[in-house]
Design a protein around this nucleic acid. Sequence first.
RNA 1: GACCCCUUCGUCUAUCGGUUAGGACACCAGGUUUUCAUCCUGGAAAGAGGAGUUCGAUUCUCCUAGGGGUCGCCA
Length: 466
Amino acid sequence: MKAYITRFAPSPTGYLHLGSARTALINYIISSQNSYSKFFLRIEDTDKLRSKEKYKRNIIEGLKWLGIQWESEIQIQSKRIDRHIEIANKLLKDKFAYKCNCSIEKLNKKREEIKNKKLKIKKVCTTCKNNQKIQTLNSNYVIRIKIPEIGSTTIKDNVQGKITINNQEIDDYILIREDGSPTYMLSVVVDDHDLNVNYIIRGDDHLNNTFRQLFIYKYLNWNIPEYSHLSLIYGEDGSKLSKRHGAVNILELKQKGYLREAIINNLILLGWSPNPNGNEIISIKEIVEKFDIKEISKSSSIFNYKKLNFFNNYYLRIPSNKKIFEDFCKTNNIMKKYYIKDKVKLLKIFEVYKKNLSSFDEIIDFIDVYYNKNYTYSTNQKFDKIFDNYFYDFVAKLNLLNDWNTEKIEKVIKNFIIEKKIKFVTLGKPIRFILINSINGPSISEIFTILGKKVSIERLNQYIIE
RNA sequence: GACCCCUUCGUCUAUCGGUUAGGACACCAGGUUUUCAUCCUGGAAAGAGGAGUUCGAUUCUCCUAGGGGUCGCCA
């Protein structure tokens, strides 16, 4: 198996979201498939205006949380500007690039003209490269790459297949801005080359850039990496995944109580299917064993939260993940209080409710009633006469029980209904209501256990038969 | 608009010319149950449209329609 050097290169202009996490994940998986491969993280922070430290931190933290590990220290693109400029100058010297001093207005006019005349060309500056005066300029110019006007360029992409476009479709894009700073198009190529990246896996919004970037590799005689352009994932309304689709920020999902296993399981199944017949639960270990990027679908897919919830429910029910629930409680502002007050009780409640949860935070809706010292039974509820007839008797029986656990309580209840020849619901429903003010919920023996004997009897005594 | 890509149940997908078009989530129904749920069983649900190629097309080709990506001194 080939040794791949892969990388994830986000720009810190937004949070790590599901789409970029998927790209990072796939890079990581590929590089995990053998011990010779490597995976780097590079922060592409050359857009000083939009890059934010908080986004950078969010991306790093999000990746760490997902368990995506990178090689050595994080690469910072802005620290390598001198090297980028050096390469641009080399290109310039070798006549693969040229200086251009066209004004923005002039360029816009040219673009307008191309549009109006329905021309297929993309090169907006056609004169500067032949103008000796401009080529000897010392300031107020940009450096553009020289792309041939004839011929075509082909890329072989592991996901998208073989794609060819005409060179006239490729613009003489800018390498160095007027202020002397390198553009993304230059920086990625130089950084990838210097890191020995030989496999680029990114979103297919970069597909067009590949044709452009290829020329830098060619002009410098650098090895061209392998490519895989992943189709993007969308929100349920078909539009790009964004804020209004819910918590697309990975760390927000963590805060809500989603597990990394669920997110990874869900993400990897978009466009890929390891097990055509049977369930779709797959561990990261199995993914690394089975994943083949050539099997991934070209078509884009829609992210479905209901499926994420299914996976999350599956993973949060696994006993060994109980400690993740504890971590959640320790960091969640609401849960913290309950956790400190009575950890054992909290874990008991979790055990009883977990089959109903899509994410840990959903337990918040159920929990307070078990901790509320000032609990009062909602008195407007009326029950069956039969229940009223046996109620005091039942409380008395329960009161006799000293060994207060689910099993014993259940026994008392069973014996009682047999003795009195009544149906379980006749007793169970009202009791549940008296205890937690809700008809629905866990079995009453569980509720008794969670509340403890003293509180249970106290709450039952709040019910007064009229 | 130009260039490129995509199109199987609501959603994610399987099928590498011949299948009752399979699975997962969601949905619906029945069963178990101490209510809700869990769990079990079952059900409904798909090849965008049109031409070709072929004995035979979901599968190959072309056209149309729909969707997406790109078209910056952003990355």
